[in-house]
Write a protein that binds this DNA or RNA. Structure first.
Lengths: 189, 189
DNA sequence: AAAATATCTAAGCACTAGCTTAGTTTATGA
DNA sequence: TCATAAACTAAGCTAGTGCTTAGATATTTT
């Protein structure tokens, strides 16, 4: 060994995540990452290989941050109400994480931004995330319910799309409008 | 007068609109516009001033194309069902217009893409569009209904956000999923 | 037919993107 | 103590961006 790294990779990735969350992937340049992460481009490429690599690590970092929220959803015993609480949690997450300028959920934002992209890696990760979410929704919808499978499937799809809409909305609309939206969304279930 | 234009501005704008619709504003370059419109960059700038100018004309062109759908919504006499039909029409519009690769509504896509932008002109146009839509929704919700104003306002907001979600969804989901989403969206209105 | 002038072509402008590299600095192990 | 090797700095690379311009081409009016 020789000279030692003057930065902590976990720390700089958190800063990168915050920037990607604020601006999305395409609207974040490596020069911006440089400033935000507080390290030189050389160090970025030495540690993460590419802008894409930084983004993948940022997604990983985000997932670990929201794990508690997702865990709460999974461990809940209140069926559909757990999903509703999850919607509220998703919207409030940025504030709770101290990311006051960030809007919506980084994963859902990414899902939307990469919807028409050819980036298979991100596409696959996002599809996995959505599939897991859908499975949990289906489980929750089945709790204490006499709904048939087809109805549950429809409602799960509905909630998944509503979650997309929420991500788009939380970038534009105010808290009250979002609350109204969530309440009406679940009044249909 | 001297030499005469070898292209029709209306025709080339329709091609530009199609490209912007497919890719969004940022992901469409002037070189791509050149190829799609079939004219040189000089001609693009001579006719429309800037990429931004081409985009504004494309939005105008799109608005005129969807006028019939919007007219149908306004002239309908079936209250909420007119809005529901409008949702279906919006999703099916690209297909009906022969734009099989295009997804969602160009205006809603633009609204989402420019949500966090500093482009005042586009922002204003989009806000106007959304305000008009909201006003119509409110009118429709009041038809043959005893709902109070507050309920109508909430439902109008809800439907506006649902329309956003639909635009995002129509870029990813299939016809059946979208139909399920629309049906559930209106099931409690 | 020729002068006038608008249109078209293609090259190039300044700038930013993601990424690389030559050369310097600094902590380490012998 | 000093060669070694990793980390760092800063400059630069290629390719792509929106936009401009010099010069060739074509159509119209006199």
């Amino acid at each position: 060994m020789a000279r030692v790294k003057q930065y902590n990779e976990q720390e700089v990735i958190e800063k990168a995540m915050s920037l990607f969350w604020r601006n999305g992937y395409e609207n974040t340049s490596v020069r911006m990452l440089e400033k935000e992460m507080g390290i030189n481009q050389f160090s970025i490429y030495a540690s993460f290989g590419s802008k894409h690599g930084v983004f993948l690590e940022s997604l990983k970092c985000y997932k670990s941050k929201i794990y508690s929220v997702f865990e709460k959803l999974q461990n809940g015993t209140d069926g559909v109400n757990d999903i509703k609480a999850f919607f509220y949690d998703s919207v409030e997450m940025p504030t709770k994480m101290g990311e006051f300028d960030n809007k919506g959920c980084l994963l859902t934002n990414t899902y939307n931004e990469f919807a028409n992209s050819e980036d298979q890696l991100i596409q696959t990760q996002m599809k996995e995330f959505m599939d897991v979410l859908k499975t949990v929704f289906i489980q929750k919808l089945a709790v204490n319910s006499k709904k048939d499978e087809a109805t549950i499937a429809k409602q799960a799809n509905y909630l998944l799309l509503a979650k997309h809409g929420l991500a788009a909305a939380s970038r534009v609309n105010n808290k009250q409008e979002i609350a109204d939206y969530i309440e009406l969304t679940f009044s249909n279930i």
